[in-house]
Each structure stands twice: as C-alpha cells, then as structure tokens.
C-alpha cells in the first residue's frame, strides 16, 4: 500500500512540469522493472474525493472524507507475487514516489 504524506503532496505541488514528468517517469520505470512480480496495481483519486460509510451502529453513517483523518493517506496499492517478505522489502526500498509503503500479506 502506498501512503502519501502532507509534505509529499506539497512537494509534488511545488514541482514544475519537467520535474513532475521526471517523477512520473521514475514511477513508470519502477512498475516496468517489477512487472514480473506485480499482478495488478491501482492508483486512487485524492483523499478529498473519499466518502466513508460507518456500519454497525444502527443506521449506517455516511461521511465526507477518508476513514482516518490524518496527515497520511493511502493513495494506491500494488499486488505483488513474491517468495517472502525480504523480496517485498527489496521492492519497497526502491519505490521512487510517496514516502511510506506498507506491506501486508493477502489473507
């Protein structure tokens, strides 16, 4: 899971066209280099587009925004097929974009 921070969003914002293009290319390259392991991946629209539904407390409650209001938001994910955690860690280490990557096995 790729996690963006406020600081990262600001840095992205401050980039000029060329810089942003280079950053984008680095991500494309990472996906190309790791294509053998990636089964599928998804980039999510920004957190301001999120809607959250809370169930279990009687009537479902629908609220605007992501499920946790915080400085860190999940911005996308990639499903990968690896032998063990070390292989996943190696991939995560070379991820060129947002500053946090959470690794979780698929249940």
């Amino acid at each position: 899971m790729f996690v963006e921070t406020e600081e990262f969003a600001k840095r992205l914002e401050a980039m000029d066209g060329l810089e942003r293009e280079a950053a984008y290319e680095a991500v494309v390259r990472w996906f190309a280099e790791n294509s053998g392991r990636i089964t599928h991946h998804m980039h999510l629209a920004p957190a301001h587009t999120a809607t959250t539904v809370r169930l279990g407390g009687g009537e479902p409650i629908v609220t605007d925004g992501p499920f946790v209001e915080g400085k860190e938001v999940v911005s996308g994910y990639a499903e990968v097929e690896v032998a063990d955690l070390d292989e996943a860690l190696k991939m995560a280490r070379s991820w060129p974009a947002c500053p946090i990557v959470e690794i979780r096995p698929v249940a």
């Binding site: 690896v82 032998a83 063990d84 955690l85 070390d86 996943a88 190696k90 690794i103 096995p105």
Partner: peptide, 14 residues
C-alpha cells in the same frame, strides 16, 4: 508465518 519472514541467511547486499 503470515508475513512470510524467510528462514535463510540474507543475500550479500542485505
């Protein structure tokens, strides 16, 4: 077991 922590000596670069 669940996160797949391997049982081996790490590779040279790790």
């Amino acid at each position: 077991a669940e996160a797949g922590i391997p049982y081996r000596i790490p590779a040279a670069e790790e």
